[in-house]
Amino acid sequence: MPTTTLAGREIDVDAEGFLTKPEQWDEELAAVLASNIGIELTEAHWVPIRFLRKDFETQKETATLRRVSTVGGIPVKELFALFPGKPAKKMSYVAGLQKPKGCV
């Protein structure tokens, strides 16, 4: 697996660029990841990102868009507005997690 330099340190990523070691993530890195994909983090972005991190601790897998909506309580429309185009993938990238595996 490759590594890449982000926020001045070596980060383990997969071929696409998603983090492979969630423990290397912190909030400072999140801002760098977000700016890599053209997103400037606001408080509204942090709500789903924090949910994803918290949910990952117990579930050991990345929450799907629907789970962020139903369990995390953030409307799907809002997620599309915050992370345009591919919300599930973009959120997981910024949260330092792998993209979700679930179908729905």
């Binding site: 490759p2 890449t4 330099t5 990523v13 660029g17 185009g85 993938k89 973009k90 990238y93």
Partner: peptide, 14 residues
């Protein structure tokens, strides 16, 4: 410094 590996998210929309 080499370019960081960043996922390309906007292929389909473009």
């Amino acid at each position: 410094m080499s370019t960081p590996i960043v996922p390309s998210f906007d292929d389909n929309t473009t």
